[in-house]
Amino acid sequence: MSTAHPAALAHQFESLEQQKESATLGMWLFLAQEILFFGGLFMAYLLYRWRDPQAFAAGSHELDITLGLINTVILIASSLTMALAVHSAQLSRTKALVRWLVATGVLGTAFLVIKYFEYSAKWEHHLVPGPGFHFPEAAIGGRAEIFFSLYFAMTGMHALHMVVGLGLLGWLLVPAMKGKFNAEYHNPIECFGLYWHFVDIVWIFLFPLLYLIGRHYHGAT
């Protein structure tokens, strides 16, 4: 065994450098699998929108662009605070790290609260797929159901990733407050940051594909 063995170094690694590079690589491979995971949903979106663009535009027209836009801004802002959290960890600034992590958590929660209001509005307007589905525009009718199926599947899967992210954030907050992370060792913060930014990127695609395609829709022709 080598002479100096830092506490943060796991037994299977030779150096902190090797440990850090392994963690980053592992996280990126995990994100690669996430890309393909969401990819299945995007594939379904691509096919069904190509088949019936009008129904998709009509469905999109029913979404609340204001809330969607606010959520976009919130989520991108949370990516900024997350990047600053990693930045603080790199400079061993414990207090700033905790502050930015909390800010990220608050923004993430705000996103989910807004999402909740959006979902309940869809429920009230009978836009949830299933036997109770009823689309206001008669010329489109049930054709819009597949759009809402995908809307709920995609945003739901995204929201689930946010919930998992917030859980992980809370779990990281404790060691962060105890000052466990510093310039030498902050892999968990770095990897969590990668995850959080990935979830942001998914939304960057979901927002235009779901909310924006119906903005200049003026009814079925």
């Binding site: 990516s79 997350m82 940051g193 990668l194 930014h197 990127i201 960057i204």
Partner: peptide, 10 residues
């Protein structure tokens, strides 16, 4: 947008 996030934030 995604590229910016990947290159700089990530």
């Amino acid at each position: 947008k995604a590229t910016l996030v990947v290159l700089i934030f990530m």
